[in-house]
Amino acid sequence: MSAETKKIGEIPSFKVTLFVRRFNPEDGQDARWQDFDVEVFGTDRVLDALHKIKWEQDGSLTFRRSCAHGVCGSDAMRINGRNRLACKTLIKDLDITQPIYVEPIKGLAVEKDLVVDMNPFYQAYRDVKPFLIASDKPEKERLQSAEDRERFDDTTKCILCAACTTSCPVFWTDGQYFGPAAIVNAHRFIFDSRDEAAEVRLEILNDKEGVWRCRTTFNCTEACPRGIQVTKAIAEVKQAILRGRA
């Protein structure tokens, strides 16, 4: 193989520096930044770089991950100050002349390195009754027009990664706010024509910690790795509360 043809097939590799926020609950030390140099390829994502660190340099580096292509929602983290999924963030798309900063999502207690306590987040989700409530017992499928189905399509995409909620400055303040993800999941049912409990959910979100705490900073919409129009969904829920129905 000539030198030239070899070049075409090669995926270019380059070196990047990652600053990772480390915290070990067992060593009694405060959280700190630690830097790692990693050789990566053009197709590598931040998750690949973290794996390279874990597998080649420091096995104690801890983070959650599973599917590695943006559908399971395990690896939301703050990369260069923005909430993203590590498995959907190509390193070459970041400014690689600078170190890449990776830290846990904010507003939830850090358990270890990039792992946070997700329970308050899940609790907020469960609090909005995120399930279909319908009294009829159909023998076959319930009918639903394509338009009615389309009405809540956007909010069915949520993967509960918490990127939105933990990008919300209101959530950062005291963690009591329901947060964008819970409202998105309420929206998914409030606007489902088959559901009969929109009023119940609207009542839940018409709360001191409900939709009214939203300040429309659009951080959530920007953070959502699924491209959900989160702020719009929250606004639609506010409108629904004012109308008293979906």
């Binding site: 399930f131 279909l132 159909p138 499928e141 027009s145 394509a146």
Partner: peptide
């Protein structure tokens, strides 16, 4: 469907 799964629909629902 009865549990709430949002299947895509035909024109007649």
């Amino acid at each position: 469907e009865n549990m709430g799964l949002p299947f895509n629909r035909t024109p007649d629902g």
